[in-house]
Design a protein around this nucleic acid. Structure first.
Lengths: 139, 139
DNA sequence: GTAGTCCTTGACGCCGACGTCAAGGCAAAG
DNA sequence: CTTTGCCTTGACGTCGGCGTCAAGGACTAC
């Protein structure tokens, strides 16, 4: 199998495959004509990479999984190093989700506060004689 | 106030300020010597930018807030355009958090599955005569 | 032969928000 | 006058994961 076919079967591009190879992640055999040659095993390695990439793993983080597969283990996550990456990623995700949730709550609070301020100003304008009318906003 | 002092007071760098200026976000007056000159109002604009940046807003997303302040409104989020950015950001955050939570759950499931597989193999090795011993992993 | 498709390497582009360095100007202190 | 320190503009570097040419070789079909 040549690079174009492998890329198509894995749903990626030849450019990505050459990039992985340049990172030492997915080395290729060469045919007599200089073309890269791959087999079904390479497809499995590549699928492992793509799966993890889709999960948001960095390329470097996929390396233990790929090496685990290449070492003959039945799955990319059959090795301790892969499990360590899983755990680290889980911790990262938990932390990130927590931060994002805090930001979201903060933004929501700001939005609600700003909407209340707007509505109060509108109420003042609509029904004059209210409490101490400010005049900064009337552009 | 010159650029260094403003940067220090806002907890950022002169490089960032020049960058904001290059984006048209925080234009500066110039003194007779060509130095940039800022006042307290610029500090407030800058603080608005930094606050939103810390919340993960893109620079472009801070623009409505800055323009709102510059238009004389009491707060950066006193304008409809700012509220729209808040709402868009909220939706983005909710979507992102949801995706990340899904990824986290997926990773967790994978981790637990891999750990079970590992433990089962260990149990087989430790206590032979178990259920149908596979032999793929024993490198 | 030649048209077409796939392959090769090499190199620059992209994105965002600056960091970092270079070369030089302006001002105040000694 | 020199040093010191802040300022100026300009331009290239960073990071990740490729995209997008460009120039040319390999192989197939007609």
């Amino acid at each position: 199998m040549r690079i174009g076919e492998l890329a198509a079967r894995a749903g990626t591009t030849t450019r990505a495959l050459r990039y992985y190879e340049s990172r030492g992640l997915l080395p290729a055999r060469r045919g007599s004509n200089g073309y890269r040659t791959y087999d079904e095993r390479d497809l499995r390695l590549l699928q492992q990479i793509r799966t993890l990439q889709d999960f948001g793993f960095d390329l470097e983080e996929t390396r233990p999984f790929v090496e685990c597969l290449r070492a003959g283990h039945p799955a990319g996550d059959s090795c301790p190093a892969s499990l360590a990456v899983y755990r680290r990623k889980l911790a990262e995700l938990d932390a990130l989700i927590g931060e994002l949730a805090a930001v979201r709550d903060g933004v929501r609070a700001q939005l609600e506060r700003a909407e209340r301020a707007r509505d109060e100003l509108a109420a003042e304008a609509g029904a004059p004689g209210g409490p101490d009318p400010h005049c900064e906003l009337g552009g």
